[in-house]
């Protein structure tokens, strides 16, 4: 069965979407990713969509779902690399991906994830005191 690869990078999971996904593949990715978060106890998910030529309402919903599910499983999600034409179209379509953190590329996405995790740790440490 066709699948989107999920790579483990230290505490993070990296997903690079490089194909035009049909809806079933989108659903499989959602399931695979939540399973991998639990299995690897990942603290963050970096989703690189720089190769995606469109994000329609179905894929947009999947991105929002993944971020929400990851959060419930104690992991943060950052979506990186959205093409400008995709961003323009997405907003005109009526989707603004509320609750989804974004960054321009994998590098800054990784930095953002680390900052988010540091803040989380500090908050945990101060509440433990």
């Amino acid at each position: 069965m066709e699948r989107i690869p999920i790579l483990k990078l230290g505490d993070f999971l990296l997903v690079t979407i490089q194909v035009d996904m049909h809806d079933q593949l989108v659903m499989t990715l959602q399931d695979d990713l939540t399973e991998r978060i639990v299995k690897t106890q990942a603290l963050g998910v970096l989703m690189d969509i720089s190769s995606l030529e469109i994000v329609d309402s179905f894929i947009g919903r999947m991105i929002g779902n993944i971020a929400a599910m990851a959060r419930v499983l104690d992991a943060e999600t950052v979506v990186v690399g959205m093409q400008p034409a995709v961003a323009i179209t997405l907003v005109e379509l009526g989707l603004s991906l509320p609750g989804v953190r974004t960054a321009l590329n994998v590098d800054s996405g990784m930095k953002l994830l680390r900052t988010m995790l540091d803040q989380k740790e500090m908050a945990n440490a101060s509440s433990a005191r």
Binding site: V55, A85, V86, T89
Partner: peptide, 17 residues
């Protein structure tokens, strides 16, 4: 243009679904 391509392809995806 790339933006117009993206708009019509996205609209087509919604309607085809």
């Amino acid at each position: 243009s790339l933006v117009d391509q993206t708009k019509i392809v996205t609209a087509a995806s919604e309607l085809a679904r």
